[in-house]
Amino acid sequence: MSVHVLKPGLLSSLQDGGRSGYAALGIGRAGAMDTPAWQLANALVGNRGDEAALEFTLVGPTLQFDQLTTIAFTGAPVDARVGERSLPGWTCCLLPAGSVLRLGGMARGCRGYLAVRGGFSAEPVLGSRSIDLHARLGPLGGRALQAGDALSVGEHAPWHGLRCHAKATPLSWGLDPQPWFDFGQEPLALLRGHHFDQLDDASQRALFGAGFRLGKDSNRTATRLDGQRLNLRAPLELISEATLPGTLQLPPSGQPILLQAEAPVTGGYPRIGQLSAVDLPRLAQRRPGDAVCFRETTLEEASARLAQRQQRLQRLLQRIALRLESACPP
């Protein structure tokens, strides 16, 4: 069974949890930028959680489903229609064979996730179905979706939870996106990086005070932050060391860049901060021009927030699985 890409949207790619264990060979993780949204989309269609979903950016794709398919979409609120019928996010929907799903623009946020029951089943590359656009690696030769692509869907148990109507039908319940989508655009928690102390006094204050705007040329490799230029006390000659998604670097331009899922695994710019893991998906939902403010955090606080979020997410994933089971007798 296949999903046909009629329009690819602005930038759509298959993503799962990412490629693990190859960083020493220069191969980064890639994977979904908003991981909780990706996991919840999978859970809502009854997937185990590590299946590939479609990540789409600012404007979603138009897709045709050649068979009856269960879908869910999460992440940024998106205008979704099958014919004239508008579909809600954060729940699952049954689409009859032949349905054309139009994922349009987003009122806010930047990235959405479309999961299908069974998962998108492209051949994994180095253990993952994530497309690394920067390294040109993964399914589809490592490129973004194009019109005319056909995506196959994995084998899965039939779904009885929803009656099959002639029309696209959402489930009668859904999730509250509130805790999982950053509506308030609160400040993001940043750890001091190794070279923070090398910033001059004004720049140290500006990093946690002034606020930035998300740059136009931000992508899955890096988020560029426009605003007050940050300066070092004195130039630093550094040798390259490993970097991580979330690392905030200061290139000579003075405009900081925050490394994202597809960033090279090593880098030689001063490391002035590290975004707390919980706030990476929140930053992934900011769009070019959005405000970005940092507040200082500690490793203890960042670790505690991460553990807490993981607990909440696990509980929710279990609850979803239970509800789907009760809607779907064996």
Partner: peptide, 14 residues
Amino acid sequence: ATECVPAYASLLLR
């Protein structure tokens, strides 16, 4: 480590 990334003079462990 789940990731162990050597560089010139440093080693990252995830």
